[in-house]
Amino acid sequence: MNAADLFGVVAALLVGIGLYGLIVNPQPLRKILSFNVIGNGVFLLFGAIAYRGAAFGLGSDPVPQALLITGLVVAFSATALAVALLLRLFEATGSDTLSSEPPAANPSAAGEQ
C-alpha cells in the first residue's frame, strides 16, 4: 500500500469520524471541532489525489495543493465565524444549545384549539 492509498483511507475514515461527531455531539463547540475533522478528511483526500499525480519532477500535483491552501483558509474563516456566533449566543442566552426552538416557530403549539 503506497502513501497515497494509505492517506486516502485515513481521509475516508476521518470524514466518517467527523460526521459521527457532528451528528451526535450536542455541544456546538464540539460540532465545530467535528466540522474541522471532516474538513481535514476532505483536504487529506485531495492531498492524496495530488500525491498520485506527481510528475515532471514535482513531488505532487501543485494545482490541488494550491487549492488546498485556499481551502484551509476558508475553513479557518468558517470556524472563526461559527465560534463568534456561538460565543455571542452564549452571551445573549446563557446557554449554548442548538435544540430549543423559539416558541413562535413551533407549529403544534397553537395547533390544538
Partner: peptide
C-alpha cells in the same frame, strides 16, 4: 459514507490524471 469513500479511493484511475505537466 466512510466505506463508500474508501471504495472510491481504490476505484480512482490507474494512471492518475494530473496537471503537474501543464504547470511544469
Amino acid at each position: 459514507v466512510s466505506g463508500a469513500l474508501m471504495l472510491c479511493v481504490f476505484a480512482l484511475p490507474e494512471t492518475p490524471p494530473t496537471l503537474a505537466p501543464d504547470v511544469a
